[in-house]
Design a protein around this nucleic acid. Structure first.
Lengths: 200, 200
DNA sequence: GTCTATATACAGATAGAC
DNA sequence: GTCTATCTGTATATAGAC
């Protein structure tokens, strides 16, 4: 039987509430009471839609991973290397702007040792990164990018872009602006341009 | 009455165990059972030394903040600008190497909205960063550093160095080396050299 | 100082009425 | 589908013996 409109609306509300709570407190720190309250449903009703607390969390991580790695997949081997890399930085930064809760959910999972996605890290992520790193290595060898370590460069993109979502509280405390991401884009574009632009 | 050797040893064991557990699961996700087990003490005995779970957490955050900001304080206004900045990066990276649990404890606190240290962020940290940013701005104005945004540059140092401690699981999954920090130092030195070295 | 036993609250999950 | 009531385990913290 197909899902009714009410059902899909409630499912969405639960996932949204779960994202809100899990991203703040981590899996163990979050409670079903909080999620139910945030979703505007009773706790038993929550468990009518999802079998368990872990089921909600698993569903969130699953839908996250794909979106999270998309910018990396979108790097075009046929494009202009520096442009491709700077576009990658901007796409990744856009994720921090548009999906900060997803970023924090992921950060919480990694911080606690990635118990729910360790296999994905070791397989999907690893392969994807190795592929992108090989591409960067080629570009470096052809002299179309400056000499850099491909793996560390990719991780630098992650660290710098995700920082604006994960450490948002600190960023705002230090910057005193209501839109930290505006300055961030200019800064990161400059940073990676200077790192990657092939030298004289 | 002065503290006995046993007392100070137990206190230290509790703080070490608390660091281990809190840094992994966050404040709410950690349990006294885990901490007691890790410390090799009974739960009531734990609470003989610290009044509450929060007291342990508070003590850890307190001793953390000072050590964490020390590298920033150590930037010498009379030094050679580029060297001072690169030394700062290396000192901060050394903290990630030597005190990864402290880094994760801090990350957990910020991720959950910094409920226990929000005042420190708004006062001590803010002032310290503004001071360092003013120094960097001077160096830029004198042409002794390349044109950069001082605040975003400081945060980039944090993001890039702390990433190797906070996201250790992911870093190792992607890099496949038993000492990620070796490559990190070379990479980050290169990155900040290219970002900050005054241009032709 | 350190333990066993326990008070009290809250967690995830289920039963069963409607 | 959604609720109230509740089961069961586990959490923080305390009482009191030793």
């Amino acid at each position: 039987m197909p899902e009714t409109r009410i059902q899909s609306r409630n499912r969405a509300a639960i996932l949204d509430a779960g994202l809100e709570i899990f991203s703040r407190y981590g899996f163990r720190g979050a409670t079903l009471d909080q999620i139910a309250g945030e979703a505007g449903l009773s706790k038993p009703n929550l468990l009518y839609y999802f079998q368990s607390k872990e089921a909600i969390h698993r569903a969130l991580l699953l839908q996250l991973m794909d979106a999270w790695l998309e910018p990396l997949r979108d790097i075009d081997p046929a494009g202009e290397p520096l442009d491709e890399m700077l576009d990658y930085v901007r796409r990744k930064l856009a994720l921090s702007r548009d999906y900060p809760r997803e970023s924090r959910l992921f950060a919480n999972e990694i911080l606690s040792g990635a118990p729910h996605i360790d296999d994905t890290l070791a397989s999907t992520l690893r392969d994807l990164v190795d592929g992108a790193a090989a591409l960067i290595a080629d570009w470096v060898a052809e002299g179309r990018l400056a000499q850099v370590d491909p793996h560390h460069t990719i991780m630098s993109v992650w660290a710098l872009t995700q920082h604006y979502a994960d450490f948002d509280v600190q960023v705002r405390a230090v910057l005193d602006t209501d839109d930290p991401l505006r300055g961030a884009e200019a800064h990161l574009t400059q940073l990676f341009d200077r790192l990657l632009r092939p030298g004289a």
